[in-house]
């Protein structure tokens, strides 16, 4: 089934140079498993394809129920020289949460 990320997770975006970091944190501990299945680095790379990313890295923090995404080349050359309206990429976290992902059902989750 489809799940809008905003229903199950909250997120925060940060930046260092030309790199955007976006944490995605499950509200409920039991949603971390499906979230980790649904929201891969490849999915996030597709979501933000138009930014011209170099690559996306994902770090898993199961104890926090959180995924941390690192988007290289996401910020138009970096905060200090980017021509973007939102040079920091602060708005990217909520943009990500607006997306619908394929949410694993209980069955596939256990499989």
């Amino acid at each position: 089934m489809k799940m809008r990320l905003h229903e199950v997770a909250h997120a925060r975006a940060g930046d260092k140079g030309d790199v955007s970091m976006i944490s995605v944190i499950a509200y409920r501990a039991e949603d971390y498993g499906p979230l980790a299945v649904a929201l891969t680095a490849e999915v996030v790379a597709r979501v933000f394809e138009a930014l011209g990313l170099q690559r996306v890295e994902r770090f898993e923090l199961p104890a926090l129920g959180a995924l941390n995404f690192v988007l290289y080349g996401a910020l138009g050359g970096g905060v200090t020289r980017s021509l973007a309206l939102d040079a920091h990429g602060k708005t990217l976290s909520s943009s990500l949460l607006a997306f619908e992902v394929d949410w694993p059902t209980a069955k596939t989750e256990g499989a």
């Binding site: 909250h10 260092k16 944490s23 944190i25 770090f59 926090l64």
Partner: peptide
């Protein structure tokens, strides 16, 4: 826990 988790991961690449 929610505000602290968001700030813990803020601007981190590899949290380890």
């Amino acid at each position: 826990l929610r505000t602290v988790k968001e700030q813990l991961l803020y601007e981190l690449a590899d949290p380890s």
